[in-house]
């Protein structure tokens, strides 16, 4: 009697059970993965637009002026409005800088502190200069800047979602 390749009934039955069990597992797991990941995979069509911030004349040289605006977005079955904000810094008559108020460390909102002459983050005591450079604290890089343009004496910033 040589080596037998015959599969016993027991083994066959075990194999079939395992096979169908696996198919069912995969049959539910694969769609479920798509189902869970779905909102992350939909781009939502990142929106880009120019946001008007009013006449340039209202900004004084050297004083950071806070601004904010709200955008609404359709998420699933609901509209969500998100607030964005920052500071317009007029460095000279012609030079502008528009900074985001989102701390580059962990995303808290920074505020301008007149007395300290710095943007201070309430979360981990980070401080930024009027130009957005890091003075102290954990942030890895200066505050982010908005791209901007001036048309007919009005200031616009470029807003890109996400």
């Amino acid at each position: 009697m040589g080596r037998s390749y015959k599969v016993s009934r027991r083994d066959f039955v075990k194999l079939v059970s395992g096979f169908f069990g696996t198919i069912m597992g995969a049959g539910i797991a694969l769609p479920a993965i798509g189902y869970v990941l779905d909102p992350a995979l939909k781009s939502g069509g990142a929106r880009e637009q120019w946001i008007p911030l009013g006449p340039v004349d209202q900004y004084q040289v050297g004083v950071p002026a806070p601004f904010n605006f709200t955008r609404t977005q359709v998420n699933g079955w609901e509209r969500t409005s998100s607030s964005y904000g920052g500071f317009v810094v007029r460095e000279s008559e012609t030079d502008f800088k528009v900074l985001s108020n989102i701390c580059t460390h962990l995303g808290c909102r920074v505020a301008w502190e007149e007395t300290e002459n710095a943007y201070v983050c309430p979360c981990h005591d980070a401080a930024f200069t009027v130009d957005g450079e890091v003075i102290s604290g954990p942030p890895p890089r200066p505050l982010d800047e908005y791209e901007f343009k001036i048309e007919d004496g009005n200031l616009f910033i470029f807003f890109k979602e996400g």
Binding site: P31, A32, Y35, D38, L41, G76
Partner: peptide, 16 residues
């Protein structure tokens, strides 16, 4: 609305 969303927008939502 959330169920409409599951049925029509989410991948395989109709299946689940």
């Amino acid at each position: 609305d959330s169920i409409q969303y599951i049925m029509n927008e989410v991948a395989f939502g109709w299946l689940i």
